[in-house]
Design a protein around this nucleic acid. Structure first.
Lengths: 249, 249
DNA sequence: CGTCCTATTGAAATTCTTCAACACTCGTGG
DNA sequence: CCACGAGTGTTGAAGAATTTCAATAGGACG
């Protein structure tokens, strides 16, 4: 016991934070990167890790959500449901995104795991208390909201004005760019697993499963993508895929 | 001259802020409501009012925008344009919304006046300096970003999953609720001017002008709305209009 | 081996777009 | 005062894109 306690104190002193956090891959990139070691220690007293399987609900529509979370791994889909069952994915979140809607009790979107997901959650109240002491934290949350807003607006253009082929290409490009955020492999081939099944892709693109399937087949047949086992996609030339996102009339 | 100067000093002393701001209808609702009288005075030294006619551009895509603005009156459309000319409105902003994208030099959306618009603009640098001193200001900007994000996600559902009739009904409902934010007149009839012409409505809904026109005609013929002079809409029963936003299959 | 889940494919039906014609309003200038 | 054109909105008919309905196939799992 004494050893642990010493180690923890050392963590604080050498500005590395709690052991739990040091082992966290999202430690520097998520909102935690804005916290001081002391804040991290305080926060880590209230954190809990959770794992969810595909299609499991992290937070239901209308829930009085009292906790926020950081995504440690996996992809989370934010969905909206209409009374008659029509569904639309209104946002996708990847690690190390922050999950939650600050300053509001309820939300009309529900969060579901698209893949296997693990998160690190903590009570709203703790974070909200820290915002007042650490402007940097509030700033990061603000930044994330603005980033999500930019992404939502990109998606509005896609939903409103693109053809089915362009939509599917845009989705694949979105995933590809997320695998390779810096566009390093602009030339070389990229390979990735689709985090969404066809039904989810359809709900994301505002199409039917069948249309999605047909467009993927189409892209496959012209060689823009190679698909194995339905989920593994290889893009031989990213530029060619990007061209499919816009020019198709 | 001496009189003016005295009056200005009194403004400061009685905590009412500069005369310019006192006469401003957006004074308390926009971000200015988060400023101290001293900050308002400082800000007002750099503010300028501008007026724009319909379809005039407030800020072009890719502009290095150095100023923010508050909308004093009118409606602003945020649009995205594709290389081949396809256009999509990705957001609508009404008085007293804040206009601008904090923490980012360029934006890929352009802002255009949908109606006649007047704004009160000021340099980014002034506001950004004030954020550090006034957490309340940063908080308000954050709130507005989150509000816009919620709205964008509502719209994503509309674009992705609703039929043309539902889309047009949803648009009319959006405008109607904006005229009457508290839904006071849930029962009684509501009358308003459409701030957008048909082409803009089409760009907002991801439809063509013709389809919009046909759906309006359809809603008119079943008595859900009454239209005069193309732009003046009366909704006899808001509930009936709301029903059209979801149930139509 | 059967069942469930996921994905693909075909044919018919539907929705929305495109193309084309026309109507209305408003300002300008003969 | 009227003709003209530009800008805006409506309507019809044909065409294209997407959905719906239906059938099939493969993989995972008990």
């Amino acid at each position: 016991m004494a050893r642990t306690s010493l180690a923890e104190r050392q963590d604080i002193h050498n500005s590395e934070g709690p052991a739990l956090c040091r082992a966290c891959e999202a430690r520097h990139r998520g909102i935690c990167g804005a916290l001081t070691p002391n804040q991290l220690v305080a926060l880590s007293k209230h954190t809990a890790r959770h794992a969810y399987g595909s299609d499991e609900e992290l937070a239901a529509t209308g829930d009085d959500v009292r906790r926020y979370a950081n995504i440690l791994s996996g992809v989370v889909k934010l969905t909206r449901l209409m009374a008659d069952g029509r569904q639309q994915i209104v946002g996708l979140q990847f690690a190390p995104d922050f999950l939650g809607r600050p300053f509001k009790r309820q939300s009309d979107v529900s969060a579901e795991a698209a893949t296997d997901v693990s998160v690190c959650s903590f009570p709203k109240s703790v974070i909200e208390g820290m915002i007042d002491q650490s402007p940097e934290l509030g700033h990061r949350l603000h930044e994330q909201a603005l980033k999500e807003l930019d992404e939502a607006r990109d998606w509005i253009l896609t939903l409103g004005r693109k053809s089915a082929t362009e939509k599917v290409a845009s989705f694949l490009y979105l995933i590809a760019s997320h695998v390779d955020p810096e566009h390093k492999a602009e030339d070389g081939p990229i390979c990735f697993e689709l985090p969404l099944k066809r039904a989810d892709i359809a709900d994301f693109l505002g199409l039917t499963i069948e249309t999605v399937s047909r467009q993927i087949t189409k892209l496959r047949k012209v060689g823009t993508i190679v698909v194995e086992h339905n989920r593994t996609v290889t893009v031989p030339d990213l530029r060619r895929l990007r061209e499919c996102c816009e020019v198709d009339r």
